[in-house]
Design a protein around this nucleic acid. Structure first.
Length: 750
RNA sequence: GCGAAAGUGGCGGAAUGGUAGACGCGCUGGUCUUAGGAACCAGUGGCUUCGGCCGUGGGGGUUCGAAUCCCCCCUUUCGCACCA
């Protein structure tokens, strides 16, 4: 007997019909929506998060669908396991990318972006994702960025936001400052223009204060290895010592200059080194051309050459400057410093191979044991002294190249004979005793520049008052709304377009009532996304950024899935902001994402999708032709989810045929006892699919289901109802519409 | 240079110490059909004297047994990169 009514004609599989029906029903019945009360009372909460998209004008990309579907499948799996799954989505719509596009179109982003959001929303609704649209966020809405500004103020109060004059990355293409993380190989991440170094007064977040903890905590996180490693490298911990080389006063010919403003008033050059054991071999010093002590050290005779060199270095973009293979250049300042170990005067040079942004911006040069210093010394005829002798090395033969291996110290006074490791410790201790050094851990990580001289972002909630100085905008006056202006185009002046609008920036000081001026820079988009996951559960509340009770109930995030391109950007910033809010007592956890998995990249026919190649997959057309269920299943079947895959049109028929066969099998199935061999295979399949879902091995889960269906239908046999009914549940995370329809046709109320 | 991942049929990939190539695409043959770029069934790593032999980038090793573990080399992709 057929499971369907004898008079009922078994219709063939029409995805469009089925999908329309179920999307509508889910919407009407609020299947995926949560009320505030339901969120509060959920007893097995599972927060399933995916990286929210930037709503580009091109519309939803197949890569977005790949990312979201993989995350959605995991959420649906958890729901089938009895969890109450909260799966929100939103839009990361502020930022240079959006703004640049608006500029190109000549449409104000305030008008353009909402259209993109609308289009994205419509496209996303067709994919069959279990989003709770009632808890969505859009970072460009005042009701959202009000709280982004609030986050800024909390960091400011905690002393973690600071305005300072500093060398920053300036993109002449985008006319704005960029965070270090947004400079890729010396180029702007958005427009590929070579980035320049400028000295500007900017707002910074002191993420470096958290460097140690950000690094340490990584060990405790259940994250993709690649992502963890990327953060580890980015934070870049190195152990060593900071040593002080006093300036040799008598040798400074030109003393008209005021003493330099360093961290203290002592006329010393501070250097960071990982090799304090080689300090006896430091035969010269090099400062970055921008180093504040250069003026003080430069002699009258050398001034012209030094100035010329500094001008030249300043004019170079970062790509040219950081080329490792170019020959070393540099100029002697005419000044000397005292090697604190050997007591000898060593000449002080400037050279662009020393970077102002790392360490102290100055190095002690040990040509005998550092490749770069050796190259520089060889080029300029500076003395090379050996202070480490390797195995079977008499310590006398002149070095043909820098020796960086292990060995014992030589030419190092009473430290001669010590092993490198011992020497490091002993020499650091000795110099520390004289107040000329200390053990030090240095991080590659920089403070996070968050000022952007652009229009399309949340205004930084700060006022400048002649009487009171820097004044934070009172929290009850938030948001500081971004005004609608026509001339939002950025320029090379180093200030935001908002600085052209006096009517906007002129205001009164909340503490003295006098005249004040608003900060006209906006904040980095990455601040918007550094806390959005805190907002989702609490979008029903407009008087707090995140409701304490809901936050305690739902956070940290249980599963987070996204692209690895954010390994050092978003994922690091979100961790920092969370940690800072935790330290202020505002959050009960310090790591936002318990589990993170990076998905792979989708390519088309073996090459990266790009507009110029003309091989960008338009997901709408594919969904219209094959149905969302087929596209979802196909994308997951392409290859291991965490490695990505190659989208080829010819492959879609496989998953499509599978779903069609499943449809037919269910609707023609018979009510009869299940064959024991089939039953055994069924249980093996359930087990396999369950394990694969947990590990995101979606491709093999699908393969297992196909294999099982092949067994069920082997030799053209009619399937037993008991053989196919469980398969409908197994396939549900992948093809939710089809599964619901079949489940209903099998006589189950949903 | 440093760090990470990977190299398996015509193609995407499966198998992490135990029958290599699951599953799918493609291809071949068949059934049905007026027809089929539909559906269904069967086959499909290479060589073969039909006994078998060879086969997971290359070379060596451990093991009763290696795609899988170890050593050396080659190639590709990604991240970081004059980081002191």
């Amino acid at each position: 007997m057929s499971t369907t009514d004898a008079t009922h004609v078994t219709a063939s599989y029409h995805p469009a019909e089925v999908e329309r029906k179920w999307q509508q029903r889910w919407e009407e019945q609020g299947t995926n929506r949560w009320t505030a009360g339901e969120l509060r009372s959920a007893d097995r909460p599972f927060y399933n998060l995916m990286m929210f998209p930037y709503p580009s004008a091109e519309g939803l990309h197949v890569g977005n669908i790949y990312a979201f579907t993989g995350a959605d499948i995991y959420g649906r799996f958890k729901r089938l396991q009895g969890h109450q799954v909260f799966e929100p989505i939103g839009f990361d719509a502020f930022g240079i990318h959006s703004e640049n596009y608006a500029l190109k179109q000549g449409i104000n982003p305030m008008e353009l972006i909402p259209r993109n959001v609308e289009r994205f929303t419509a496209q996303l609704r067709r994919v069959g994702l279990m989003y709770d649209w009632s808890h969505s966020v859009d970072t460009t809405r005042p009701e959202y960025y009000r709280w982004t500004q609030w986050v800024f103020l909390q960091l400011y109060r905690a002393g973690l936001a600071e305005k300072k004059e500093a060398p920053v990355n300036w993109c002449p293409g985008c006319n704005t400052v960029l965070a270090n993380e947004q400079v890729i190989g010396g180029l702007c991440e958005r427009c590929d223009t070579p980035v320049e170094m400028r000295f500007l007064s900017q707002w910074f977040f002191k993420i470096t204060r958290y460097a140690g903890r950000l690094l340490e905590n990584l060990k405790t996180l259940d994250w993709s290895d690649t992502t963890r490693k990327a953060q580890e490298n980015w934070i870049g911990r190195s152990e060593g010592a900071e040593l002080a080389f006093p300036i040799a006063r008598r040798r400074v010919a030109d003393d008209r200059h005021e003493p330099a403003q360093l961290h203290d008033e002592k006329p010393v050059i501070r250097v960071f080194t990982t090799r304090p054991d080689t300090v006896f071999g430091a035969t010269y010093m090099v400062l970055a051309p921008e180093h504040p002590l250069v003026d003080r050290l430069t002699s009258a005779e050398q001034r012209e050459a030094v100035e010329a060199y500094r001008r030249q270095a300043a004019s170079q973009d970062l790509v040219t400057r950081k080329k490792t293979d170019k020959t070393k250049t540099g100029v002697w300042t005419g000044g000397y410093a005292v090697n604190p170990a050997s007591g000898q005067d060593v000449p002080v040079w400037i050279a662009d191979y020393v970077l102002m942004e790392y360490g102290t911006g100055a190095i002690m040069a040990v040509p005998g044991h550092d490749e770069r210093d050796f190259e520089f010394a060889a080029q300029f005829g500076l003395p090379i002294v050996r202070v480490v002798a390797g195995e079977g090395d008499d310590g006398d033969t002149p070095l043909a190249e820098a020796y960086t291996g292990p060995g014992r110290l030589v030419n190092s006074g009473r430290f001669d004979g010590m092993e490198v490791a011992e020497g490091k410790r002993a020499i650091t201790e000795w110099l520390a005793g004289m107040g000329l050094g200390e053990q030090r851990i240095n991080y590659r990580l920089h403070d996070w520049t968050i000022s952007r001289q652009r229009y399309w972002g949340p205004p930084i909630p700060i006022l400048y008052c002649d009487a009171c100085g820097i004044v934070p905008v009172p929290e009850d006056q938030l948001p500081v709304e971004l005004p609608f202006i026509q001339d939002y185009k950025p320029d090379a002046t180093g200030v935001s377009p908002l600085a052209r609008h006096e009517e906007w920036y002129r205001t009164t000081c909340p503490s003295c009532g006098g005249e004040a001026r608003r900060e006209t820079d906006v904040s980095d988009t990455f601040l918007d996304s550094a806390w959005y996951f805190l907002r989702y559960p609490s979008t029903d509340f407009d008087q707090v950024p995140f409701d304490p009770q809901l936050t305690r109930h739902w956070l940290p995030v249980d599963s987070y899935i996204g692209g690895n391109e954010h390994a050092v950007l978003h994922l690091l910033y979100a961790r920092f902001v969370t940690m800072a809010l935790h330290d202020m007592g505002l959050l009960h956890f310090e790591e936002p994402f318990t589990r993170f998995r990076a998905h792979g990249l989708i390519v088309k026919d073996g090459s990266k999708m790009s507009k110029s190649r003309g091989n960008v997959v338009n997901p709408d057309a594919y969904i219209a032709e094959w149905g969302a269920d087929t596209i979802r299943t196909y994308l997951m079947f392409l290859g291991p989810y965490q490695e990505g895959g190659d989208f080829r049109d010819s492959g879609i028929t496989g998953p499509y045929n599978f779903l069609t066969r499943l449809w037919d099998s269910v609707l023609t199935s018979e009510e009869r006892p299940i064959d024991p061999a089939v039953e055994q295979k069924l249980h093996a399949t359930i087990r396999k699919v369950t394990e694969d879902l947990e590990s995101l091995s979606y491709n093999t889960a699908i393969a297992a289901m196909m294999e099982y269906l092949n067994t069920v239908r082997a030799g053209g046999r009619t399937p037993e109802r008991a053989a196919v009914e469980p398969l409908v549940r197994l396939v549900a995370p992948f093809a939710p519409h089809l599964a619901e329809e079949l489940w209903e046709r099998l006589g189950h109320a949903q």
